Simulated assay, not measured.
Amino acid sequence: MLIDSEGQASIAVVAHGADDLRVEEIPAPVAQSHEAIINVAFGGVCGSDLHYWKHGAVGESILRAPMVLGHEVVGTVSHAASDGSGPTEGTRVAVHPASWEPSDIRFPTDRPNLSAGISYLGSAARFPHCEGAFASQVALKTSMLRPLPDGLDLRTAALIEPASVAWHAVSRSGEVAGKRVLVIGSGPIGTLAIAVANRAGAAEIVAVDVHDFPLSIATAVGATRTLRADDTDAIASVDADIVIESSGNHRGLASAIRGATRGGTVVMVGLLPSGEQPVLASLAITRELTLVGSFRFNDEIDLVIDALADGSLNIDSVVTHSFPVTDALHAFKVAADPSTSGKVLLEFSQ
C-alpha cells in the first residue's frame, strides 16, 4: 500500500553538481507500508553535504544525478506506517540514516556499520543514489526512526546523529574513565567527542584546532585545556592515553601520533582523502600505538538519546547557527567556515 502526503510538494535541498546547490520543490513523498512520513524540523549540515556541494563528490562517491542532501534530521511523524510498525502520528523522532541489504562481502555481524550492503541517506555511493532527508517531508523506513523523550528540544536533538558518530569513536578507544584524552580537530565531531569523553569520566581532555572559535566550543563542552594546531611541541608533550583524530588530514594524524603516550590508542574518525597518505608509521610502531578506525555508528544512537534525556551529555553549545531552508546556500557557506561556525542547522518546520 502506498500513501502520499495529500499531494503537497516538499521543499528540498538538492545538489545538482559541483557548486550547484538548489532549494526546489520535489514531489510529495510516497510511503510504502513499512514507511512513515516525517515532517522534518531541523537538519544539520555535515561535512559530506559540503563536499557534495563544493566538489560534486565525497571521495569516490560521485554525483551522477541530482540528489537530495542530508542525513542529520529530526522531525515529527505526520503519517504512521500503514503496516502498524514504528511510531504513531504526532511522535517526534530522530533518524538513524542507515539501512541494510544482504551482502556477500564478509563483515563482523556485531558491527553492521561495516556491511557492504549498507545504504545511507544522502549518499552517492551507489546509483541510483540514496536520496537524503533535507526536505520538508520525507518517507522513511520505520526501522530508521527513534522516538524522542518528552522535553528534549528538537534543536538539540538535531545533533543526535553526529553525536552518535562521536560516541562510536570514543567507544572504539576502550575505557575512558580516568584517562587523558587528546582531540585533534574541534569541529562538530571533535567537540561532540569531547562531550562524550567528558561524560565518560575522562580525567583530562585537551582540544586542538587551527582556529580559536571552535576551541571556545570545545571548552564549553568539557575540554580542560586547548592548544593551537601549529603548536606542535605542546601537542607532542600531551602524552595522551587516548587520541581522537577528527581533523581528517594527514597533518592532524601526525599530531595525533606524536601526542599519544607509549602504548596509547589513536582513534581515526576524521576521514582522510582516498589514496595513499603520509603516516608516521615508525613512531607508531616503536611506541606500540594502537591505531583504530571509526566509521559511522550502530546502536549508539539509543545511548545518545538516553544521555540527552537524563541531562548527562552536554552538547547544546555545538550548534552555533540556524537558517531557514530557503537560505540553504548561505547556511552552507557559513558551515564551510570553521573559524566562525560549529554545527549549522537548516530549519524546515517545527
Results as ranks from 00 to 15, higher is better:
Leu313Phe: 15
Asp19Phe: 00
Arg106Tyr: 14
Lys343Gly: 07
Ser123Asp: 01
Ser282Phe: 11
Leu253Trp: 08
Ala307Lys: 07
Ser99Cys: 12
Leu253Gly: 03
Glu25Thr: 14
Leu140Arg: 00
Val13Asn: 02
Ser164Arg: 10
Ala125Cys: 00
His71Ser: 02
Gly259Thr: 01
Ser322Met: 08
Cys46Val: 02
Met67Gln: 00
Asp110Pro: 10
His79Lys: 15
Leu69His: 05
Val292Tyr: 01
Arg111Pro: 07
Arg199Asp: 04
Glu288Cys: 03
His321Glu: 04
Ser48Lys: 02
Phe295Tyr: 12
Ser123His: 03
Thr265Trp: 11
Gly174Asp: 00
Glu347Thr: 12
Val238Asp: 07
Val269Gln: 00
Ala260Gly: 04
Val68Lys: 02
Ile26Asp: 03
His211Tyr: 14
Val269Met: 05
Leu145Trp: 15
Glu347Lys: 13
Pro278His: 10
Asp209Ala: 09
Ile38Ala: 05
Ser82Leu: 15
Ala256Cys: 05
Ser216Met: 10
Val196Tyr: 11
Thr156Ala: 11
Asp230Gln: 14
Gly222Val: 02
Gln350Tyr: 15
Val243Trp: 09
Ala229Glu: 10
Ala240Arg: 07
Ser10Trp: 13
Ile160Thr: 10
Glu24Cys: 14
Thr261Leu: 04
Thr219Leu: 15
Leu283Gln: 09
Asp104Ile: 13
Asn298Asp: 13
Pro147Met: 03
Ile285Pro: 00
Ala177Phe: 15
Lys343His: 06
Leu2His: 14
Lys179Cys: 11
Ile160Asp: 06
Leu271Phe: 12
Leu152Tyr: 14
Ala218Ser: 11
Ala328Met: 11
Ser246Gly: 11
Ser85Trp: 14
Asp231Phe: 13
Leu227Gln: 06
Val183Arg: 01
Glu6Asn: 15
Ala9Val: 12
Ile38Arg: 00
Ile244Ala: 04
Ala133Tyr: 12
Val93Glu: 04
Ser143Arg: 09
Asp316Lys: 13
Ala240Val: 01
Gly44Thr: 03
Ser274Gly: 13
His129Asp: 04
Asp19Glu: 05
Pro27Val: 09
Pro278Asn: 04
Ala197Tyr: 13
